[in-house]
């Protein structure tokens, strides 16, 4: 599904070069529920952004479904994100002028589906994430947990191959965070969608069936729950 081969990423902050990733190699198989863990500044978000085609690697290669993302142009990358990828962000990133329903159906509208299909799929996923009856609310009218559920529904409604969640529970209290993780794990099992999420929270790491530990831009350890 995803292959990351010796990827490096440098950022230039003024005259200083920050090596966010220093040669990461990783393979993620279809249907995996994998957590990228590590302290702040270890390169978790950078790695997710590169896999999600939101940023470009300085060196190395990333393949999604055996296609090198570096060879794609802006338009092709947009199409790849539209069809295959779903994102869940730490700060939810919902569009404030759209209701919960509209935020979720947004992804489907981009796919050019019929109004009826958009409605059916949106209502179904909102029900599934526990937001039935709240579809007309605006983000400001929802709690943090509910907003993150909208974000998850938005990522999943288009049935992507891969969902990238960047610290999805960081802005939530521990109970809500746990609920969200259970929801994600359940959806992973039910829809067989590959999940890669980053965290530095031990409780979150426990949920992962595979754990990749990052430190200073390098993978320092990999654990598998089954193993």
């Amino acid at each position: 599904m995803v292959r990351v081969v010796d990827v490096k990423k440098d950022y230039h902050v003024g005259k200083t070069v920050v090596n966010a990733l220093r040669g990461v190699t990783l393979e993620v198989k279809e249907g995996e529920f994998i957590s990228i863990a590590g302290p702040s500044g270890s390169g978790k978000t950078t790695l997710l952004n590169l896999i999600g085609c939101l940023d470009k690697a300085t060196e190395g290669e990333i393949f999604i479904d055996d296609e090198a993302v570096a060879e794609k142009n802006k338009k092709e990358l947009a199409l790849l994100r539209r069809r295959k990828l779903g994102f869940v962000f730490q700060s939810f990133n919902l569009i404030p002028v759209l209701t919960a329903y509209e935020n979720v159906s947004f992804s489907l509208s981009l796919l050019g589906l019929s109004d009826r299909e958009i409605r059916d799929r949106t209502m179904k996923i909102l029900e599934e994430v526990g937001l039935g009856g709240l579809e007309r609310r605006f983000p400001a009218e929802l709690s943090g947990g509910q907003q993150q559920r909208v974000a998850i529904a938005r990522a999943l409604v288009k049935e992507p191959e891969l969902v990238l969640a960047d610290e999805p529970t960081a802005n939530l209290d521990s109970k809500t965070g746990k609920d969200i993780l259970e929801l994600m794990a359940g959806l992973n099992e039910k829809h067989e969608i590959t999940f890669i999420f980053s965290t530095h929270d031990p409780m979150v790491m426990d949920f992962a069936r595979r754990l990749v530990l990052l430190h200073d831009g390098r993978i320092v350890e990999e654990k598998s729950r089954e193993a």
Binding site: G52, L54, K74, K75, A78, L79, L80, R81, R82, R83, L85, F87, N93, I95, P96, F106, S107, L110, R154
Partner: peptide
Amino acid sequence: MGEIGMMRAMGMNDRE
């Protein structure tokens, strides 16, 4: 800007 970022992340191309 954040909204523009989100739209792009969700797969809207520059033209859209």
